[in-house]
């Protein structure tokens, strides 16, 4: 199905989805740690977004607004039966190291890190991922997560310290 119409105010929801779908799916995969849960959250996010879309103020920052909905969906989501899929995903990791052995080691570190991230409290996980992988400022993190910039920063630092503790057993192997 192609949409050949140019966008006109008050905005075409389809166009909004076109613009942000990849970014939001990427974000949700990082948050959820598995593709199937991320896909459920994606549906949930955009269904909710559609319901609020026509009442949105014209000066709304759509990107931040979508991140906020996606984050809330994630925070409210009850983790369930899908743990098994995470393992399957992790085994798909392809290292780009110089040798198969190095690639394997690298994949193991990535695996360990992913598991440690998955064990972070959800708000910390969201703040850390926004900051580290999506390049958000603390102001942006606080806008998406709710709360103050100080609280956003505290969440990121708690996550960092916890990851360092959890990964303390890792030895540098090269």
């Amino acid at each position: 199905m192609t949409n050949t119409c140019p966008a006109e105010p008050p905005g075409d929801f389809g166009l909004l989805v076109d613009t942000y779908q990849t970014e939001i799916l990427r974000y949700l995969r990082r948050l959820a740690g598995d593709a199937a849960t991320a896909d459920d959250l994606f549906q949930d996010t955009f269904l909710r977004a559609f319901k609020a879309f026509s009442q949105l103020r014209s000066d709304t920052n759509h990107r931040a607004w979508l991140y906020r909905i996606a984050t809330n969906r994630f925070l409210n989501h009850r983790r369930s039966r899908r743990r098994g899929i995470e393992v399957a995903l992790v085994s798909e990791v392809r290292g780009r190291g110089p040798s198969p052995a190095a690639a394997h080691e690298r994949a193991e570190v990535v695996d360990t890190l992913r598991q440690a991230i998955a064990r972070l409290p959800k708000r910390q996980r969201a703040a850390f991922i926004q900051r580290q992988l999506h390049g958000f400022s603390y102001r942006e993190v606080s806008a998406v997560l709710g709360g103050t910039e100080t609280a956003a920063r505290a969440n990121v630092y708690h996550a960092v310290r916890r990851l360092r503790r959890e990964l303390a057993a890792l030895r540098r192997t090269t």
Partner: peptide, 14 residues
């Protein structure tokens, strides 16, 4: 950790 992060990000790339 920093390098593993980018590896993890690549794994999650849709």
């Amino acid at each position: 950790i920093r390098r593993a992060l980018s590896g993890a990000a690549a794994t999650d790339e849709p």
